[in-house]
Amino acid sequence: MFRHTPLRYIALALLAAGALFQAATAGYFGLEILIEILILAMLVLALDMVAGFGGMVSLCHGALMGVGAYAFATFGGILGLTPLVSLVGAIALTGATAWVIGAVCARSHGIYFIMATLAFGQMAYSYVFQTPFFGGDDGMGGIERLDLTALGIDLTDSRSFALFCLGVLGLVYLATVAVLRSGLGRSLTGVMHSEQRMRALGLTVWRVKADVFGLSGMIAGLAGALSAMHIMYISPGLLDWTVSGEALVVVILGGLGTLVGPMIGAVALVVLKHELSAITPYWHLVVGLLLIGVVMSRANGIFGWIEAQIGARLDKRLNDITRPQPTEEPRDA
């Protein structure tokens, strides 16, 4: 189950402060990078929810995000619905898609689960790529952002949009924590540790997996719709499996099953990508070596490593009545 430690509160506060500072002071380019980070952070929260707390390592979350983006664009651009209705529709549709995928894949484990989700993701990619209705490989343009002028907010402005995304990310984080703390989230972690035991306790295992996968898909769909609003243009590249792979890389670099870690990972990857691609065209090489190093070091990502180093000591000092705080988060799926 997910637990907030003082260290996690500190990290969250730092992240929020950093994002607010960036949103207040950065120029156009800085804001674009911030928005990119915020949207990626939503996606990796969704992925960490299923991978870190349910052992469901999904390689279709990028595709789910793409489904959200395409649903949003289709509802708005072709059916002519208002952005708000399109947004709700996109979230619902992506959630339903994810629920079905989760239900179908619930019986597979380990590498088969990875492959099965990959297959569904690629199916969505090929379908969108080859369907003229969705613009094929040309993608779709002219996507509208949400209209919040009634609240006095103009989202066409980059700064407002960045703050809006930050707010949404905050809500997504709270929702994720709430889900993981609910009975459903606890059942999920139980399923990860032993399906047999949970089944013996009378739980319908596939329903738990499918439900959480659906919820995670809703978050991915939301991230997709926001990314469509952000760029105002979408292309099938959004659904490609490398996007899902990259999201998984972020979760691992940050720290699987910590929620805070993947968000740090999102910051690290986007900043690294922009800094490195300014220096060398071969930034993939550096990211690849980094990934290999992190996985082989057996630390649980950047945040997991920090937690292991200072977390235990800090916790002891801060809550004195203490239960000893081992790193109880599962490291491997």
Partner: peptide
Amino acid sequence: LVTFGLIFV
């Protein structure tokens, strides 16, 4: 993940 990193490299 390690082999995914290897792909990049």
